[in-house]
Design a protein around this nucleic acid. Structure first.
Lengths: 100, 100
DNA sequence: CTCACGTTTCGACGTTTATCTAAACATCAA
DNA sequence: TTGATGTTTAGATAAACGTCGAAACGTGAG
């Protein structure tokens, strides 16, 4: 849990997770969204990987990063529960328009 | 937001917040729950204070710490919204004795 | 095989963190 | 005022962090 919060404590890393929400992306493509060196980005990726928030997969020359939503969800769920809050997974049903 | 997550990234500080959930508590009483020096605890309190997660109030010799739930809630709410999750505020305890 | 490309690793540097002991500060009681 | 109690500050140290440029690694194209 500490490693997850630690990972979330950096804005760059939070933005990486946000970008990954839209789908898997290569290290280079991710890095293009930031103005730090590739070395620095690689280090951020490592933190996210060690926290279990992303997984990487090699595809030819590239390394593709995938978001691991469950890990993020589990950590936040466990924590928010301590405070009596309820964290609900993504509601995938905003199509309901029947509320008379 | 970064300061909040940073504060949450330490187990000692998370436990302090958890203890404070039950009600305000003095620095000394809080420190008694941990096996680090008072100076170290004071430093942890400062981190929580700077993140806005707690506020302190002087009462005679003691310093009483209060949990600032709204700050924690706001940060987590904002973040979880990015991931399409819904974080519901604490269920109001049914401590209502009289509802005539 | 050789080369360029995408990515990570290696040192290095300055900053921040967690921790301690010792000292200082603040307040109450005798 | 003196002393005891509760808390914070000061100063020190070792580890971790964010960052960089340069070098190394792995892979596909020619």
């Amino acid at each position: 849990m500490s490693t997850v919060f630690k990972a979330l404590s950096d804005p760059t890393r939070r933005k990486v997770l946000e970008l990954l929400r839209k789908g898997p992306m290569s290290a280079g493509d991710l890095a293009d969204h930031f103005s730090v060196s590739k070395a620095t980005m690689s280090s951020h990726f490592a933190v996210l990987r060690e926290a279990g928030l992303v997984v990487s997969e090699k595809d030819g020359k590239q390394v593709i990063y995938h978001l691991r939503l469950t890990v993020l969800e589990d950590a936040l769920f466990e924590f928010t529960r301590l405070f009596g809050w309820s964290l609900a997974p993504a509601e995938e049903k905003p199509t309901e328009k029947e509320t008379p």
